[in-house]
Amino acid sequence: MSHPHHAGLPAQAAAGAESGRGAGGLLRILGYPLALDRQYQPDTHMWVLPAGPGLVRIGMDALGIETSGTLAQLSFRAAGTGLAAGRPFGELEAAKFVGPLVSPVTGTLVTVNEAVAADPGLAEQDPFGAGWLIEAAVAGAAHDLPGLLADPDEITAWFAGKVEEYRLSGVIAQ
C-alpha cells in the first residue's frame, strides 16, 4: 500500500516540510497526527498497539476518522466474540453511512472502550489515545502481526501518500 512517490524514503523525508513531532510524541504528517509506536492496517486505517502479553489495543487513525465524516454512532460486538482479520468487530456511522469497523487482527474481543461508545467524539479528539476502540487477545507476537505495516518509514510513506490521495480527490481539504 506504500505510495509510489514516497516508498523507500526515510520517515521524516517522506513526511515533507510540513511535518514534525507534535504533542504526545505524535509525528505530524502533512497536518495530520501519526503515532509510530504501533502497527497499521493500510486499507482500513486501523492501528494496533501491543497492550500486554497476547493483548492488543485497536483504534482508527486520524485520517480514517476524518474521511468517514463526523462520527455519530459506534457499536461493537460483545466481549468474548471471536475476531477475524478483515471482518467486522462493530459498526461506525458517520454522515448517515453505516459501515463496518474492520478488525485488523484475528483473535478474541476482550474489552470495548465504553467511553468512546458513549461519546464517539473521543475518537476524533484523541484517536491514538483515549479514543481507542477495543482490546483484543491475539495469538503470537503482538508486535509483529500479519498484514500490518510495522516499519516506521513504511508507515510514514503510506500515511503521507494517503493524505495526498485524499486531498487530490477532494475528500479532505487542501
Binding site: S68, G170, V171
Partner: peptide, 9 residues
Amino acid sequence: VPVARLDAL
C-alpha cells in the same frame, strides 16, 4: 466504491 466514506457518498 472508495474506502473514504465521504468520497463514496
